[in-house]
Design a protein around this nucleic acid. Sequence first.
DNA 1: ATGGTTGGTCGCCAA
Length: 260
Amino acid sequence: MKVLTWNVNSLRTRLPRLLALLEREAPDVALIQEVKMLEEEIPYDRLAAAGYSALVNGQRTYNGVAILSRHHGEEIARAFPGDPVPEEARVLAARVGGLTIVCVYVINGQSAGSPAYERKLVQLRSLRDWITSTFDLEQPVLVGGDFNLAPDDRDVWDPAGWKGHTHATEPERAEFRALLDLGFADLFRLHHDEGGVFSWWDYRQGAFHKREGLRIDLLLGTEPLARRCTEVRIDRNERKPSAGEGAPSDHAPVIATFDD
DNA sequence: ATGGTTGGTCGCCAA
């Protein structure tokens, strides 16, 4: 089984690249963030032609999340108690085969101490409370998406410069560690100890070329899933310009492989 | 600290 997560920064703009990625990697499941489309605008036919059904929690202009799967998925939820921004489409949970999947797009937080940052901390806490009270974490559960936080300094290109800034503050990291403490593994870290491997680079100032990024796109798995995880990689090539498929997202896909 | 670039939408907001 192969699962990936990718913040596409507009499904409309990124569709040619998404279809190429699906063909190239042939994941069983793809968690997608920043769809920025209403459900009625989703190109279900194009996705179906590529072999995927789509569950979508859509929104115009901002946010929007989707779960694509080769086999039929069943929606579980698109909201959770205590979400400080229930009007924003940032979560979608589904059952696909024997797997429970939660696709998340966590609040960015703008700057540490801002109202948006405070909402981000509340969202992370509420998300954790919902997950622990709703799902059987002895079973295979995958929580993945754009967490808008770098779990530790290995996940930040300039830890000194980012110290205290949103995505790298201690309260965000404490919320993340508390989520892991429910019984999740950061699947990338099962296979990689090194720093400097990132999933997001600012569009500006040639950040990608200078390797100035963050690892904020994460796949978390409960133990029954984590023990089957054989590989996690980040497809840096997807962040580069490509001929014929349009501009890249500012995020690269994170791709995990599992024994069946 | 600010600014730079991208996307959605058409004067800006969000990232």
